[in-house]
């Protein structure tokens, strides 16, 4: 029964210049893959040679203000040896795409569709890349840090509106990457007053108008539809 450290070291030896690590935190090992283009190759090796036959999850993180902007994290597990591994890779905003691993594990199909939907990263070679949680034709990528929690006005086909969620004082939001805990404390912030990010150039959120008329009382806005 191999331990997680042995498997991680074997992976690093095989791809010497490409993979760095493993870094250990709370008993978990993280390996960094320098080039996202060769991710499928590394994953195929991990599955066939090292026995990581179960892809647990693919996650994306938006490092707003850093370059490269996006980090992708793959969690692997093997039913034979019961060991976890984590692979990380970076994708810059200009490039915005990387090859798919759905040829290695079929479960990556839906995970990658979700990342495409939420973060806007494209996967080359994906059999069916379209939005999965938001509807077709939604123009934004909600999990990016510059997208406000209350949303931006868009069009839902046949329903004519989506509004930013209204609340006097806004929903409780934090400042992504604020310099200390006091700044990161979630509190009601009006979008036009608060900066999105304190590192780098702060930009104010766009003002979202509340077009909903509260005077109609009980009932629908579009009662004639």
């Amino acid at each position: 029964m191999a331990t997680a450290l042995e498997l991680a070291n074997r992976l690093r030896e095989r791809f010497a210049s490409l993979v760095s690590g493993p870094v250990e935190f709370r008993g978990e090992l993280t390996l960094r893959v320098a080039d996202a283009e060769r991710m499928a190759e590394v994953c195929a090796f991990a599955k066939t040679e090292l026995g990581f036959d179960y892809l647990v999850d693919i996650t994306s993180v938006d490092n707003y203000g850093d370059d490269p902007r996006f980090t992708l994290i793959y969690h692997l597990y093997g039913y034979g040896h019961h060991c976890y591994a984590r692979l990380k890779t970076d994708v810059s905003e200009e490039k915005g795409e990387l090859p798919t691993v759905s040829g290695v594990w079929q479960t990556a199909n839906w995970h990658e569709r979700e990342i495409y939907d939420m973060m806007g990263l494209r996967f080359r070679g994906h059999p069916d890349l379209r939005r999965i949680l938001m509807w077709e034709g939604y123009p934004h990528n909600p999990l990016r840090k510059d997208f406000p929690l209350s949303g931006k006005p868009t069009d839902v086909p046949e329903l004519a509106f989506t509004q930013a969620a209204p609340l006097v004082g806004g929903p409780f939001v934090t400042v992504a990457g604020g310099k200390d805990t006091i700044e990161r404390e979630p509190r009601g912030r009006l979008p036009e007053n608060e900066p999105v990010e304190t590192k780098g150039a702060p930009e104010l959120r766009q003002v979202t108008e509340d077009r909903h008329d509260h005077s109609s009382g009980r009932g629908a806005v579009d009662q004639n539809q």
Binding site: S150, A164, A165
Partner: peptide, 8 residues
């Protein structure tokens, strides 16, 4: 759920 995808 005061978020971007929920009808209030």
């Amino acid at each position: 759920y005061r978020s971007y995808s929920v009808l209030q």
